[in-house]
């Protein structure tokens, strides 16, 4: 119990004194996950719109598959991206393994099913009369998709926040693709795992508190959006 208490005190000290290493790891985590969430949103939101608004054979099976992939194990994604980016893999020549860019790609793949699936759910909540009205007023397909996404903007933003939270808190992709290299690819989750295995519980707890703090801010933002 004393160890935990000391850990909390040390955590507070590291945070209050803005410990450079802790701040750097935090900033890197936020940057990588924010980039992954933003890029994934730019691709997945219009893709979700297309899937929802177009009728095609196998649509239901595709949506079911996307929803099944919500809980995609992060280590599985890590392994897949590792195989793709490793020297002998199809994208090995790009030398993205053990780089922040590789981590961004991995996190994008990890959160894409969530973003696409939640976008589809969000758009289903928009009245079909909105779609008819937009089409009737002369909107083309991309204008209709933009209009409907705009109508469902709070739910879509919530989907992006959920995706960002998942990217920030995952450890499998970050560890397998980033390699936990100090000052380069080390992020909050991989650092917590490392510090714990090394017995540095205070640092580990400080990083954990920061991670929980960010998650809380995200959840508060989410509640605010969903309440609107």
């Amino acid at each position: 119990m004393e160890e935990i208490w000391n850990g909390i005190l040390r955590a507070v000290e590291l945070i209050v004194t803005l410990n450079p290493e802790v701040m750097e790891i935090t900033a890197r985590s936020l940057f990588i996950s924010f980039t992954a969430a933003t890029l994934a949103a730019a691709i997945d939101i219009p893709l979700g719109g297309l899937i929802e608004l177009r009728e095609f054979r196998g649509k239901r099976a595709l949506v079911d598959l996307i929803q099944t992939l919500y809980g995609l194990p992060t280590v599985t994604v890590g392994l897949l991206v590792f195989l793709l980016l490793s020297r002998s893999g199809p994208f090995g020549s790009l030398e993205l393994l053990y780089t922040p860019t590789g981590m961004v790609i991995g996190q994008m793949i990890l959160i894409s099913p969530i973003l696409i699936g939640l976008t589809i759910s969000a758009l289903r909540g928009v009245s079909p009369h909105i779609r008819d009205t937009a089409i009737s007023l002369g909107a083309n397909e991309s204008q209709v998709i933009r209009t409907i996404i705009k109508e469902a903007r709070f739910a879509v933003v919530a989907a992006v926040l959920i995706g960002f939270g998942r990217a920030l808190s995952e450890v499998g992709v970050a560890m397998m693709i980033g390699g936990n290299i100090r000052d380069y690819t080390r992020v909050l989750t991989t650092s917590i795992a490392l510090q714990t295995s090394m017995g540095n519980l205070e640092t580990s707890m400080a990083l954990g508190i920061i991670l929980i703090g960010i998650s809380m801010i995200l959840n508060l933002s989410l509640s605010r959006f969903q309440g609107r």
Binding site: I130, G138, T147
Partner: peptide
């Protein structure tokens, strides 16, 4: 369709102000 316009029996409004709603067709 851009040569026509339709008013539905139960019209719906986009989540925006009146001006945005009225200019929507011109914009698209």
């Amino acid at each position: 369709r851009r040569r026509m316009a339709m008013v539905f029996q139960k019209p719906v409004m986009f989540k925006s102000n009146v001006l945005d709603n009225v200019t929507f067709g011109l914009m698209v």
